[in-house]
């Protein structure tokens, strides 16, 4: 491997993890001792990685936290009045009403009740309740 400044990114990590061949390792050590730019880069990287973080306390933190905790306390409202329940309930109710009214008006407008025979009317009612085949067969007999 070429031990030069442009190839620093290839040989330096290998040097530190002991993955360079013996002669390359010696070349890398020599390069670091003579090239100021690479030495500076290596020192900066090591300083960053080995740096310890000193935990420091923030004296005003607990005041900010307790103010937020006050705000975040759960309210004791009845559960059906909570937004998620209320919206779900309203949506279900409106869907149910919509389907009921739609069905009612659809059959009101499509059935000419004066000209319909009893058997046909019965077939229509049983279609609505999902038992059409069963009843129609009875009447056909």
């Amino acid at each position: 491997m070429k031990i030069t400044c442009p190839s620093f990114k290839y040989w330096y990590p290998r040097l530190k993890s002991g993955k360079l061949a013996a002669n390359d390792e010696q070349l890398a050590i020599n390069h670091l001792s003579t090239c100021e730019k690479c030495r500076k880069a290596a020192n900066a990287i090591e300083a960053l990685i080995e740096d310890k973080i000193q935990p420091e306390s923030d004296v005003f933190f607990s005041a900010r936290l307790f103010a937020r905790l006050e705000k975040s306390k759960p309210s004791h409202s009845v559960f059906i009045f909570r937004p998620v329940f209320a919206y779900t309930l309203l949506l279900s109710l409106s869907l149910f009403l919509g389907i009921r009214l739609g069905t009612y008006f659809y059959y009101q407008s499509s059935i000419p009740s004066e000209n319909i025979s009893i058997s046909e009317e019965y077939a229509i009612h049983s279609t609505i309740s999902g038992l059409d085949v069963f009843f129609q067969d009875d009447f056909n007999e």
């Binding site: 990114k9 990590p13 530190k16 993890s17 900066a44 990685i49």
Partner: peptide, 10 residues
């Protein structure tokens, strides 16, 4: 891994 990443930006 950090050395690899950081030395790219040296």
């Amino acid at each position: 891994n950090l050395r690899k990443h950081l030395s790219t930006y040296y």
